[in-house]
Protein backbone atom coordinates (compact mmCIF):
# COMPACT_ATOMS: atom_id res chain seq x y z
CA UNK A 1 0.00 0.00 0.00
CA UNK A 2 2.73 2.48 0.91
CA UNK A 3 4.56 1.99 -2.40
CA UNK A 4 1.31 2.96 -4.17
CA UNK A 5 1.17 6.11 -2.11
CA UNK A 6 4.82 6.87 -2.79
CA UNK A 7 4.31 6.23 -6.53
CA UNK A 8 1.34 8.63 -6.56
CA UNK A 9 3.31 11.31 -4.72
CA UNK A 10 6.33 10.90 -6.96
CA UNK A 11 4.29 11.10 -10.20
CA UNK A 12 2.02 13.89 -8.96
CA UNK A 13 4.57 16.11 -7.25
CA UNK A 14 8.18 15.13 -7.72
CA UNK A 15 8.20 14.59 -11.48
CA UNK A 16 4.95 16.38 -12.25
CA UNK A 17 3.78 15.72 -15.77
CA UNK A 18 3.16 19.41 -16.61
CA UNK A 19 5.77 21.34 -14.68
CA UNK A 20 8.73 18.97 -14.68
CA UNK A 21 8.20 16.79 -17.75
CA UNK A 22 6.55 19.68 -19.68
CA UNK A 23 3.83 17.47 -21.15
CA UNK A 24 0.24 18.73 -21.70
CA UNK A 25 1.17 22.41 -21.74
CA UNK A 26 -1.46 23.59 -24.23
CA UNK A 27 -4.52 22.49 -22.23
CA UNK A 28 -2.76 23.84 -19.13
CA UNK A 29 -2.60 27.25 -20.81
CA UNK A 30 -5.93 26.96 -22.62
CA UNK A 31 -8.40 25.77 -20.02
CA UNK A 32 -7.02 27.43 -16.92
CA UNK A 33 -9.08 30.64 -17.20
CA UNK A 34 -11.48 29.56 -14.47
CA UNK A 35 -11.32 26.99 -11.70
CA UNK A 36 -14.54 25.25 -12.65
CA UNK A 37 -13.47 24.58 -16.24
CA UNK A 38 -10.01 23.58 -14.95
CA UNK A 39 -11.60 21.03 -12.61
CA UNK A 40 -13.79 19.76 -15.46
CA UNK A 41 -10.76 19.42 -17.73
CA UNK A 42 -8.79 17.74 -14.94
CA UNK A 43 -11.54 15.18 -14.37
CA UNK A 44 -11.91 14.48 -18.10
CA UNK A 45 -8.13 14.06 -18.50
CA UNK A 46 -7.92 11.82 -15.42
CA UNK A 47 -10.66 9.60 -16.81
CA UNK A 48 -8.99 9.44 -20.23
CA UNK A 49 -5.47 8.92 -18.87
CA UNK A 50 -6.41 6.12 -16.52
CA UNK A 51 -8.43 4.33 -19.17
CA UNK A 52 -5.72 4.93 -21.79
CA UNK A 53 -2.99 3.53 -19.52
CA UNK A 54 -5.02 0.37 -18.95
CA UNK A 55 -5.89 0.01 -22.64
CA UNK A 56 -2.32 0.72 -23.77
CA UNK A 57 -0.94 -1.89 -21.38
CA UNK A 58 -3.47 -4.42 -22.67
CA UNK A 59 -2.67 -3.53 -26.30
CA UNK A 60 1.05 -3.73 -25.66
CA UNK A 61 1.06 -7.10 -23.93
CA UNK A 62 -1.80 -8.89 -25.71
CA UNK A 63 -1.56 -7.54 -29.23
CA UNK A 64 1.65 -5.77 -30.14
CA UNK A 65 4.29 -7.89 -28.43
CA UNK A 66 2.86 -11.35 -29.33
CA UNK A 67 2.57 -10.29 -33.00
CA UNK A 68 5.87 -8.29 -32.90
CA UNK A 69 3.99 -5.23 -34.11
CA UNK A 70 5.60 -2.90 -31.63
CA UNK A 71 6.37 -0.46 -34.47
CA UNK A 72 2.62 0.19 -34.55
CA UNK A 73 2.62 1.21 -30.87
CA UNK A 74 2.00 4.95 -31.28
CA UNK A 75 -0.64 4.42 -33.97
CA UNK A 76 -2.73 2.02 -31.88
CA UNK A 77 -2.31 4.07 -28.72
CA UNK A 78 -3.61 7.18 -30.47
CA UNK A 79 -6.51 5.20 -31.91
CA UNK A 80 -7.54 4.01 -28.45
CA UNK A 81 -7.05 7.40 -26.85
CA UNK A 82 -9.08 9.08 -29.59
CA UNK A 83 -12.01 6.75 -29.08
CA UNK A 84 -11.91 7.15 -25.29
CA UNK A 85 -11.88 10.93 -25.74
CA UNK A 86 -14.76 10.78 -28.18
CA UNK A 87 -16.73 8.76 -25.64
CA UNK A 88 -15.87 11.25 -22.87
CA UNK A 89 -16.97 14.15 -25.06
CA UNK A 90 -20.33 12.57 -25.73
CA UNK A 91 -20.74 11.77 -22.06
CA UNK A 92 -19.94 15.31 -20.90
CA UNK A 93 -22.16 16.82 -23.59
CA UNK A 94 -24.98 14.71 -22.19
CA UNK A 95 -24.13 15.01 -18.49
CA UNK A 96 -23.33 18.74 -18.14
CA UNK A 97 -23.74 21.01 -21.19
CA UNK A 98 -22.41 23.92 -19.12
CA UNK A 99 -19.08 22.21 -18.63
CA UNK A 100 -19.11 21.15 -22.29
CA UNK A 101 -19.57 24.82 -23.23
CA UNK A 102 -16.76 26.05 -20.97
CA UNK A 103 -14.28 23.37 -22.09
CA UNK A 104 -15.08 24.07 -25.71
CA UNK A 105 -12.40 23.04 -28.22
CA UNK A 106 -10.06 21.72 -25.52
CA UNK A 107 -12.23 18.63 -24.85
CA UNK A 108 -11.64 16.92 -28.23
CA UNK A 109 -8.07 18.19 -28.04
CA UNK A 110 -7.33 15.79 -25.19
CA UNK A 111 -6.63 13.29 -27.97
CA UNK A 112 -3.62 15.29 -29.00
CA UNK A 113 -2.72 16.05 -25.39
CA UNK A 114 0.90 14.94 -25.22
CA UNK A 115 0.54 14.10 -21.51
CA UNK A 116 -1.93 11.30 -22.29
CA UNK A 117 0.17 9.70 -25.01
CA UNK A 118 3.37 10.49 -23.08
CA UNK A 119 2.16 8.62 -20.00
CA UNK A 120 1.06 5.65 -22.08
CA UNK A 121 4.48 5.45 -23.74
CA UNK A 122 6.31 5.96 -20.41
CA UNK A 123 4.33 3.07 -18.99
CA UNK A 124 5.61 0.84 -21.74
CA UNK A 125 9.15 2.16 -21.30
CA UNK A 126 9.19 1.51 -17.56
CA UNK A 127 7.62 -1.93 -18.18
CA UNK A 128 5.16 -1.48 -15.32
CA UNK A 129 2.69 -4.27 -14.57
CA UNK A 130 -0.99 -3.64 -15.25
CA UNK A 131 -1.82 -2.31 -11.79
CA UNK A 132 1.26 -0.08 -11.63
CA UNK A 133 0.75 1.39 -15.09
CA UNK A 134 -2.85 2.31 -14.23
CA UNK A 135 -1.62 3.78 -10.94
CA UNK A 136 1.09 5.69 -12.81
CA UNK A 137 -1.54 7.02 -15.28
CA UNK A 138 -3.84 8.04 -12.43
CA UNK A 139 -0.96 9.64 -10.48
CA UNK A 140 0.25 11.78 -13.35
CA UNK A 141 -3.37 12.76 -14.15
CA UNK A 142 -3.72 13.81 -10.50
CA UNK A 143 -0.58 15.93 -10.88
CA UNK A 144 -2.00 17.41 -14.08
CA UNK A 145 -5.28 18.31 -12.35
CA UNK A 146 -3.47 19.72 -9.31
CA UNK A 147 -1.35 22.04 -11.45
CA UNK A 148 -4.34 22.97 -13.61
CA UNK A 149 -6.47 23.89 -10.55
CA UNK A 150 -3.68 25.85 -8.86
CA UNK A 151 -2.82 27.69 -12.06
CA UNK A 152 -6.53 28.44 -12.69
CA UNK A 153 -6.80 29.92 -9.19
CA UNK A 154 -3.80 32.15 -9.91
CA UNK A 155 -5.16 33.23 -13.28
CA UNK A 156 -8.54 34.11 -11.77
CA UNK A 157 -6.72 36.39 -9.35
CA UNK A 158 -4.47 37.86 -12.07
CA UNK A 159 -7.52 38.55 -14.24
CA UNK A 160 -8.45 41.16 -11.59
CA UNK A 161 -4.92 42.61 -11.37
CA UNK A 162 -3.81 45.82 -13.10
CA UNK A 163 -1.33 44.00 -15.38
CA UNK A 164 0.65 46.41 -17.63
CA UNK A 165 -0.59 46.40 -21.22
CA UNK A 166 2.54 44.68 -22.54
CA UNK A 167 1.95 41.68 -20.26
CA UNK A 168 -1.85 41.51 -20.32
CA UNK A 169 -3.38 38.20 -21.45
CA UNK A 170 -1.14 35.21 -22.09
CA UNK A 171 2.31 36.74 -21.36
CA UNK A 172 1.44 37.11 -17.67
CA UNK A 173 0.06 33.57 -17.73
CA UNK A 174 3.39 32.31 -19.06
CA UNK A 175 5.27 34.22 -16.33
CA UNK A 176 3.00 32.75 -13.68
CA UNK A 177 3.30 29.15 -14.84
CA UNK A 178 7.07 29.49 -15.07
CA UNK A 179 7.21 30.73 -11.46
CA UNK A 180 4.96 27.82 -10.53
CA UNK A 181 7.42 25.45 -12.22
CA UNK A 182 10.21 27.16 -10.26
CA UNK A 183 8.35 26.38 -7.05
CA UNK A 184 7.74 22.75 -8.04
CA UNK A 185 11.48 22.25 -8.48
CA UNK A 186 11.65 22.27 -4.70
CA UNK A 187 10.38 18.71 -4.80
CA UNK A 188 13.22 17.57 -7.09
CA UNK A 189 15.47 14.99 -5.56
CA UNK A 190 12.78 13.92 -3.07
CA UNK A 191 14.16 10.46 -2.43
CA UNK A 192 10.83 8.82 -1.97
Amino acid sequence: MSELLLLLISTALVNNVVLIKFLGLCPAMGVSKSMDSALGMGMATTFVMTLASAASWALEHWLLEPLELTFLRILTFILVIASVVQFTEMFIKKASPGLYQSLGIYLPLITTNCAVLGVALLNVQQAYGFFWSVAYGFGSALGFTLVLMTFAGLRERIALARVPAAFAGSPIAFVTISLLALAFMGFSGLNV
Binding site: L63, L72, L79, M90
Partner: peptide, 20 residues
Protein backbone atom coordinates in the same frame (compact mmCIF):
# COMPACT_ATOMS: atom_id res chain seq x y z
CA UNK B 1 -1.07 -9.22 -39.21
CA UNK B 2 -0.35 -5.47 -38.90
CA UNK B 3 -3.03 -4.47 -41.40
CA UNK B 4 -5.56 -6.95 -40.08
CA UNK B 5 -5.10 -6.08 -36.41
CA UNK B 6 -5.42 -2.37 -37.02
CA UNK B 7 -8.51 -2.61 -39.20
CA UNK B 8 -10.25 -4.94 -36.72
CA UNK B 9 -9.33 -2.68 -33.83
CA UNK B 10 -10.58 0.38 -35.76
CA UNK B 11 -13.80 -1.35 -36.72
CA UNK B 12 -14.49 -2.48 -33.16
CA UNK B 13 -13.90 0.98 -31.69
CA UNK B 14 -15.95 2.62 -34.47
CA UNK B 15 -18.85 0.30 -33.70
CA UNK B 16 -18.65 1.01 -29.98
CA UNK B 17 -18.65 4.77 -30.63
CA UNK B 18 -21.60 4.49 -33.04
CA UNK B 19 -23.69 2.76 -30.37
CA UNK B 20 -22.57 5.24 -27.69
Amino acid sequence: AAILSLTILGALLGLALGIA
